[in-house]
């Protein structure tokens, strides 16, 4: 099976000269299709940077990223944008819903970006809202939602476009325990029910336990230690973290 994502020798350096900082160093890994993968690491370990590179939002200093069969390094900025549009659904840490659009419109945004008509949006959105228990909040503006509701809306948006890969950047970072659990269950469903590939970055062991495979990023480098599921226990994740002194 062709991996959904292959990262080879990925390096990202910020700054120049004396202020040069290597946030990622020679990171290599693969994510198979229909896999819930997780990259764990403490704050500042380069997790978010990794997601930005994988999604084509940023360019690596070195290395290669092959996403859904295409080498991002060979694409122009516009081609990367279009590839990202077709391939990736994004769930952000800070939700990043558009403040002027309702929940309904925010969820349907990927279809609008893809140029689909209003009719198609109106057919696609309600089932997602129903599924993520947002049907009653369809007309609300983001500032009227709770944190959990905003994040569920963000997940719905990530699903609406039908992209095969969902990237989730610390999706529970700003949520309560209960809300965070709901969000992780929803993400697990994305893999189990929709058959999509999920790549989660987190520092939360509970969240990592939802994954099929967990990689550990320490000081910009991937550890050799990998946890494989399914049904990983939270304790196993804690043990791994302790072993890595994270």
């Amino acid at each position: 099976m062709t991996p959904m994502l292959r990262v080879q020798g990925l390096t990202k350096v910020f700054g120049k000269g004396r202020e040069e900082t290597a946030v990622l160093r020679e990171v290599s890994f693969e994510v198979e299709e229909r896999t819930f993968a997780c990259v764990m690491g403490p704050s500042g370990s380069g997790k978010t940077t990794l997601l930005h590179l994988v999604s084509g939002l940023d360019e690596p200093s070195a290395g290669a990223i092959v996403l859904a069969g295409r080498d991002l390094g060979t694409l122009s900025q516009r081609e990367r944008t279009l590839h990202r549009r077709r391939t990736i659904g994004y769930v952000f840490q800070f939700f990043n819903l558009l403040p002027n659009l309702s929940v309904r419109d925010n969820v349907g945004l990927p279809l609008a970006i893809a140029g689909r008509g209003r009719g198609e949006v109106e057919r696609a959105v309600p089932p997602l809202l129903e599924r993520l228990r947002l049907a009653g909040r369809a007309g609300a503006l983001p500032h009227q939602l709770s944190g959990g509701e905003m994040q569920r809306a963000s997940i719905a948006r990530a699903l609406c476009g039908g992209q095969p890969l969902v990237l989730a950047d610390e999706p529970t970072g700003n949520l309560s325990q209960k809300a965070g659990l709901e969000v992780m269950q929803a993400l697990r469903e994305v893999r189990d029910r929709d058959g999509r590939t999920v790549l989660l970055v987190t520092h939360n062991p509970r969240d990592a336990a939802f994954a099929d495979v967990v990689y550990f990023l320490v000081d910009g480098q991937l550890s050799e230690r990998v946890l494989r599921g399914p049904n990983l226990a939270v304790e196993a994740v804690h043990e791994a973290l302790a072993a890595l002194s994270i």
Binding site: S55, L57, R78, T81, L82, R84, R85, R86, I88, Y90, F92, N96, L98, P99, N100, L109, P110, I113, A114, R157
Partner: peptide, 16 residues
């Protein structure tokens, strides 16, 4: 600005 960044992250082109 933030909204525009999100749109770009979601795949909106400059033309859009």
């Amino acid at each position: 600005q933030k909204e525009l960044g999100i749109l770009k992250a979601l795949g909106a082109t400059r033309g859009q």
